[in-house]
């Protein structure tokens, strides 16, 4: 602003001398805003490679209801079963089919070679969502593994396998808690030596579902104590002590 020139007043025409510095200021601000946006967006972590299939598919195998519904294929692959939204697979359509050979219809979620079936909505099908095909195979063999204290993060299996990306971490805590209390299997994800993900289904001491007790420990670094076991191609950990949050 030069001497003698009018000051800037919002409701009057802009004086000449105000225009240039103001343009510089506004231009600078715009650049700063663009820089902030790029810097923040560029630094986001990789959510991991996971796919939520869009096609309806059919899967055949033996259904086991407890502790969480799974379908074990003839090749011995364990596919967890969940429903649409933030709900586990138990209940309607699945109940009463324990140990039966079934055909289930749904969509696949896949990560690290692990697969999970999100059951179709009944309105999408002519047949029932889970069809009973007769007597099924025996449950997979169970063997004890070593490892008592394990560190990692508790996530819900559905989001982590691709329903949300990222499906872990503190920002996802409320969602994972809702999923787990809704009956979606809780899984402890830790890192193998090569940096890959290690999955263990979390169960109570007697192999029962304990999702209610996990609230408050989901989506954050935790330490769990328990007995690790292998059930077919699935690893589980039966907790022998309450979960503890790890603080820095």
């Amino acid at each position: 602003m030069t001497a003698g020139e009018r000051i800037y007043v919002g409701y009057l025409p802009m004086p000449r001398g105000t225009r240039k510095p103001l343009l510089l200021i506004v231009g600078g601000l715009m650049w700063a805003i663009l820089f902030a946006s790029l810097a923040i967006a560029l630094s986001q972590r990789d959510p991991g490679s996971a796919v939520w299939g869009t096609n309806l598919e059919s899967f055949e195998g033996t259904l086991f209801e407890s502790p969480y519904p799974v379908l074990v294929t003839d090749r011995g692959e364990t596919l967890m079963i969940v429903r649409m939204g933030k709900f586990g697979g138990r209940g309607e359509g699945v109940g009463g089919l324990d140990g039966r050979r079934v055909r289930a219809h749904g969509r696949l979620l896949t990560r690290d070679g692990r697969r999970l079936i999100e059951l179709a909505d009944a309105s999408e099908l002519d047949s029932s969502v889970v069809e009973d095909l007769g007597p099924g195979a025996a449950p997979s063999e169970r063997t004890a593994l070593s490892g008592e204290i394990l560190g990692g993060e508790i996530v819900d299996y559905k989001c982590f396998l691709g329903a949300m990306k990222p499906g872990d971490g503190k920002a996802h805590q409320a969602c994972a808690t809702l999923c787990i209390t809704g009956g979606i299997p809780p899984v402890l994800v830790s890192k193998n030596d090569d940096g890959s993900n290690h999955y263990q289904l979390i169960l109570g001491a007697n192999g029962e579902p304990i999702h209610e007790q996990l609230t408050g420990f989901i989506g954050i670094p935790v330490e769990v104590r328990g007995n690790a076991e292998r059930w077919g191609d699935l690893e589980v950990i039966r907790l022998t002590a309450p979960v503890v949050a790890v603080n820095p």
Binding site: A41, L42, Q44, D46, S49, A50
Partner: peptide, 15 residues
């Protein structure tokens, strides 16, 4: 800018 960078940097199965 935010949405564009996110879409360009994290694609396919890693989106």
């Amino acid at each position: 800018a935010f949405i564009g960078v996110s879409a360009i940097l994290h694609t396919g199965d890693n989106a």
